[in-house]
Write a protein that binds this DNA or RNA. Structure first.
Lengths: 147, 147
DNA sequence: TCTTGACTTAGAGTTCGCTCAAAGCCCTAG
DNA sequence: CTAGGGCTTTGAGCGAACTCTAAGTCAAGA
């Protein structure tokens, strides 16, 4: 298939596909008689996987590392597994953060909902949350600000 | 407290705090006798909340909308609730995507793990989540909506 | 046949969210 | 008193990930 078709199939633009090829995320595409890129189903699959990695927040430089390992063949299996495994850990951690933040949002939205005239949840008091995962410095002992 | 203290308390740099003030995410700070920014606990709380929004992927321009509503006072409660509610929907959607991607990662890592010498999961076949039986979301591949 | 639209390239431009530099002022510990 | 570190400002710079432009080639449908 041509680059435009692949773009439609994968949801990324042809520009981005060429960009990915340029930086090494995609192998150099085969060309048809007239010098145009010609793709197979495997490209759809590979880009689909890259998109998943992207969704989960993997930076391009890490996708590149993975892609290079993949290009090196079967012997890199363990290295690829390790790379994905580390990434999975990060994704899990982020997931937990998101879930925690979600409950904060729930609380806050609920706070806005009740008693419309007054505000038991003023901008600040309602901003206060049970601090969960994200502990920037770790140095925060005194938690003031009403919980 | 001074800007450096606030930075330590919140985990963002003093540079970023000034940047946030510049773009309107933080109100203009009160100054002490010598013209330096002086913060109270409320700043810690507010930045904490902003950090959570950031964690959940809210772009700065949306935080700005929220901050401006907040600055306008209590009457904007419903608008703020709506803003957060829409954001919550997006976060929930993203959360679902992440969870789905996680199971893909699990499958793939497991694939690399089994039968160390050979590889039933060669670069492509294992990259494929095509007809991977475990289809968590039920999302048929082929067209994932673009992010 | 003609025209339209998809394709090609190299390289420049954009957006986001910081991050730093430079030059100078001033608080505080020693 | 002095040195050092933290603060001030404006404005420039940066890395990530695209995104688009320009100028040109070419294939295929009306």
């Amino acid at each position: 298939m041509k680059i435009g078709d692949l773009a439609k199939r994968t949801g990324i633009t042809a520009h981005t596909i060429r960009y990915y090829e340029r930086i090494g995320l995609l192998p150099h595409a085969h060309r048809d008689g007239s010098g145009r890129r010609d793709y197979g189903e495997d490209s759809v699959v590979w880009i689909g996987f890259l998109s998943r990695l992207k969704t989960t927040g993997m930076p391009i430089r890490d996708m590149l590392r993975y892609a290079r390992l993949r290009a090196q063949g079967d012997s890199t299996g363990p290295a690829r597994a390790a790379l994905l495994s580390e990434h999975r850990d990060r994704v899990r951690a982020h997931l937990a953060e998101l879930q925690s933040a979600l409950t904060v949002l729930d609380t806050k939205i609920a706070g806005y909902g009740e008693t419309e005239g007054t505000d038991p949840n003023d901008a600040d008091s309602n901003d206060t949350d049970t601090h969960t995962t994200t502990d920037p410095t770790g140095t925060r002992h005194g938690r003031h600000g009403r919980d």
